[in-house]
Amino acid sequence: NPMTAMGGFARRLEDVAQNDKERKYAGIILKEMRRLEEILNDIVVFSQDRCCTAFELQQPREVIQENLEKHRDQLTGQNIKAYLDIESDLPRIPMDREKIHLILDNLISNSMHAMPQGGEISLTAGTTTAESGQGLVRISLTDTGPGLPEQVLEVLFEPFTTTKEHSLGTGLGLPLCKKIMEEHDGWIEGENLPDKGAAFYLYFPLSPENQA
């Protein structure tokens, strides 16, 4: 509630600003307010016993394409090329669509932060099999950034671990991704690629009928 009031008055200040300097200051306040809202949203979702509630059968291709399109202008503006490689006959799987978008938002945002001068992001999806024989859908995101520091890899999904400056990250993004994937009865992994860049993998278990 306090943030709603502060944001409303900041927008009002922007509307009634008399010169460029006042508009600039009001714009900075609004930008920081939006960032605070994102941080609080992560904290609220992370603190819930169960955050995924709206499970429906979804086609992974549609979810991935929808999310990538949302980031298209940002990627283009930062000179980042995005590539898709998705199996044509992927089965539909139960997903909380909004929360999977939150995961993809986090991963794409992290890759963009790691490549301020441009680079490449690849999103792939296909079926695979776990060592136990469980059928899986795997969604992968790789980038051509510098990769993750080794000391961070060891605690990648622990709360408040971040490679960003303190003013840019809360360290809750990847732990939140892990929580969401566990509520989908799946898991998330991250690693550095042999040549350059980082990779993240989302694993969703297939139902018995889809495995058949």
Results as ranks from 00 to 15, higher is better:
Gly186Pro: 08
Gly169Gln: 03
Thr128Gly: 04
Ala125Trp: 00
Thr129Arg: 11
Glu183Gly: 02
Ile121Tyr: 01
Ser140Met: 14
Glu165Ala: 12
Met181Arg: 05
Gly147Ile: 12
Gly135His: 05
Thr128Lys: 06
Glu154Val: 09
Glu165Met: 09
Cys177Arg: 03
Ile121Thr: 02
Gly169Cys: 02
Ala130Gln: 08
Leu156Val: 11
Leu141Ser: 10
Asp105Glu: 12
Asn110Gly: 15
Ala130Gly: 08
Lys164Leu: 14
Gly147Ala: 13
Thr128Trp: 02
Pro149Lys: 11
Gln134Asn: 03
Leu172Glu: 03
Leu107Asn: 09
Leu136Ala: 06
Met115Leu: 07
Met112Ser: 07
Ala125Asn: 01
Ala125Asp: 00
Ser167Asp: 14
Ser140Asn: 12
Thr128Ala: 07
Ile103Leu: 09
Met181Gly: 02
Val137Ser: 05
Ile108Val: 15
Leu156Arg: 01
Gly119Ser: 01
Leu141Asn: 11
Asp185Ile: 05
Thr170Cys: 08
Leu104Pro: 09
Lys99Ser: 15
Asp105Thr: 10
Leu123Cys: 08
Ala125Arg: 00
Ile103Ser: 06
Ala125Cys: 11
Leu141Gln: 15
Ser132Gln: 02
Thr163Asp: 13
Ala114Glu: 07
His166Arg: 13
Pro159Lys: 04
Lys178Gly: 09
Gly147Lys: 11
Gly118Cys: 00
Pro146Trp: 09
Leu168Ser: 11
Lys164Gln: 13
Gly147Cys: 11
Gly145Trp: 11
Glu183Gln: 13
Glu165Leu: 13
Glu150Ala: 13
Met115Ala: 05
Leu148Pro: 03
Glu98Ser: 14
Leu168Tyr: 10
Leu176Lys: 01
Lys179Trp: 04
Gly145His: 10
Glu154Thr: 13
Lys99Tyr: 10
Lys179Gln: 13
Ile188Tyr: 06
Phe157Gly: 03
Leu153Val: 08
Val155His: 14
Leu156Asp: 01
Gly173Gln: 07
Gly135Pro: 04
Gly119Leu: 01
Met115Cys: 04
His166Val: 13
Leu123His: 02
Asp185His: 15
